Structure formats: structure tokens, C-alpha cells
Simulated assay, not measured.
Amino acid sequence: MASRSHRRTVPRRRTALVTAVALAVAGLVVTLAMAFRPAHQADTVRAASTPTAAEPTGKPQPKPTPTPTPSTASPAPTTSTPATHTAHATPASSAQQSSTTTSPTAPRPASGAAPLAGRIKPGVTYSGVATHYAAGDGDGACLYGPSPDLMVAAMNHTDYEVSKACGAYLLVRTAGGASVTVRITNECPECAPGQLDLSEQAFAGLGALSAGRIPITWSLLSPGTSDPIAIRYKTGSSRDWCGIQALGHRNPLARLEVRDGGGWRQLTRTDYDYFLSPDGTGCGGSLRLTDIYGQQLTVDGIAVRPDVVQSTHVQFALR
């Protein structure tokens, strides 16, 4: 008689054999199914099993660091520090070098970046007081000579900034809404930062002369004009030494350069708004004018003729 263990062993072998056969058949079916699967379905399966870069991987992604936004608050003119600029601050684009004279339009506050501006910057409103003086013919420290109109002003010494303010147009307002447009032709050495000393004619547009002092705000303008810029050589100028002045520029002038060989040489600006060439370099040659916005104008054909105003037939673009 077979032992109990022998009778239990036989069924196990049969079960194992059946199982093995079943597995083999299943494997054959799977193999045949995969062999006859269309190629694009196999690719789809593989693609679905591979995560893409856009799919979350389960790992927390770091949050981007926010970029600080610069403050838009206007600096107080009494505490601002003059900006320092090099001779090659920002090259002008070809569009900015256009010599086309702009048709006259109504004055409006200047806007946009001004990389060559000094203390007085476009888009900034400055606070101070207005006083008045007898302007005579409108001439002053800028040595422009008699003014065609007497809506002129003297800039305080701080904001005059070694004649960088010369020729700038300003919109001056009172709290009551009165306003005038003036051109800087003079300096007021004893005036406080932010203060403007207006001609009596300009002051009268804001209030009675008897008021003496009026609180004001003022900002830079880029006025509409059809008049071109003019050039004048200083008394005593020659091919060996010269002083050069630009007149009637719409926007504040930042640099005046002369041709020096194959390049340009920046001339030193005086506090009476002439640019000097002590060794005669460029006297009577090509000139390049750059405003505070980086716009450049190249002028040829201006001879050394002391004290003669010579038109350039070009003007900076309205800003």
C-alpha cells in the first residue's frame, strides 16, 4: 500500500505540469499578440510610459524668485545726487541720428529714458519757489545774447550744474493751476536747490510781482519748434583755439564733440556754456551734438567765424 506521502506527491506533480503548460500557452498567446500589434500602437505604449518634461514628476519644483520692481517715486531735487556719465554712455540709433527738422507742436512734458541727463531729468516734477528779477534783454550766464522773448529764468546754482541746464525748457506751475513755460538762460548763485528766479514777465504769468515768492513745481519740456539748432564760435576763436556753443536746441545738450582723426573727441563744457578746444582740435571741422536722450546730430560746414550765429538746418526729435 502506497504511503500517504506518496499519494500526495503525485497530484502536486500533475498540478505543476498543468500550471507549466498553462503558462507556456499564455506566453505563446501574448507573444503572438505582440507580434501582430500595429507598430503605431507599440509606439503609443512606449510614449505613454515615458514621462515628458511638462509632466509632474512628484518632486516639488522651486518657486521662481520675484524680480524687485524699482520704485517710481520721484527723487527730491534737494537731496538727489548728480548722475555721473562717461563719454560713451549710450550710442544713438540710426533713427535718432535723423537730421529732419520737426514741425512745431504744442509743448509737452518730456518723457522716456535720458541716460545722459544730469540733475534735471525728464518725467520728474521738482518742487521749489519762484522769485523774480529784471531780466533786461534776456541774456545771462549762458551767454546766449538777447532773447527773442523774455519768458526766461535763472536756474539755482545746484541744478544749473556747470551750465548743463542752459537752454532747457521748463513748465512751471502753481498750486492754483497757473503755468508758464520758460527757457533757462541764466544762473542764480544764491538760490536754493529747486528754486527758479523768473524774469518779471514770466513771474507775472503766475501771480502778482508784489508776492515776491510763490511755491511752484516745475518739470522738463521738449517743446515743439521748427527752428534749427545754430552754432556760434566764441570771440577769439581760430584754427588754433576755439570755443563752440550750440543755440536753440530743443532738448538739453549733453555733449559736443569734434572730429579727431578717425574718431570723435568730447570737448570740455564751461559754466558759460561754451565747449572749448584749447589745442584747436576740430575747430572748423565736423561737429557732433548729443542730447540727454542720446540722440545725435552730425553737423558739417560750420566755419570758424567768431560771434556769428550759423544755422545747422537740423534739430533734435521731439521727446
Rank of each mutant, 00 (worst) to 15 (best):
D227S: 00
D227I: 00
D227Q: 02
P228V: 10
P228F: 11
P228E: 10
P228H: 10
I229D: 04
I229L: 07
I229E: 07
A230L: 11
A230Q: 14
I231Q: 09
I231Y: 12
I231T: 12
R232D: 09
Y233T: 13
K234N: 10
K234W: 12
T235S: 15
T235P: 09
T235W: 15
G236L: 04
G236H: 08
S237I: 11
S237M: 07
S237A: 11
S237L: 09
S238M: 03
S238A: 06
S238D: 06
S238G: 05
R239L: 09
R239P: 01
D240H: 05
W241D: 00
W241P: 00
W241H: 01
C242N: 09
C242W: 07
C242F: 07
G243F: 02
G243W: 01
G243R: 03
G243S: 01
I244C: 08
I244S: 08
A246D: 14
A246Q: 15
L247E: 09
L247C: 05
L247G: 04
L247P: 03
G248C: 11
G248R: 08
H249P: 10
H249K: 03
R250V: 14
P252I: 08
L253Q: 13
L253F: 14
A254K: 01
R255W: 15
R255S: 12
L256D: 06
V258Q: 00
V258R: 04
R259W: 06
R259L: 15
R259G: 11
R259A: 13
R259D: 10
D260N: 07
G261C: 08
G261D: 06
G262Q: 06
G262I: 02
G262A: 11
G263F: 08
G263K: 06
G263V: 05
G263D: 05
R265S: 05
R265K: 11
Q266R: 15
L267W: 05
L267D: 02
L267F: 02
T268S: 10
T268G: 02
R269T: 03
R269E: 01
T270R: 04
T270F: 00
T270E: 03
D271P: 09
D271H: 10
D271R: 12
Y272N: 01
Y274E: 01
Y274C: 00
Y274P: 00
F275V: 06
F275I: 05
F275W: 15
L276P: 02
S277R: 14
S277V: 13
S277D: 13
P278Q: 10
P278D: 14
P278A: 15
P278C: 11
D279P: 07
D279S: 12
G280T: 14
G280H: 12
G280E: 14
G282M: 13
C283A: 02
G285N: 05
G285H: 04
L287E: 01
R288C: 04
R288H: 02
R288K: 12
R288M: 07
T290F: 06
T290I: 15
T290C: 03
D291V: 01
D291F: 00
I292H: 07
I292Q: 13
I292M: 10
I292P: 05
Y293I: 00
G294C: 03
G294I: 03
Q295R: 09
Q295K: 03
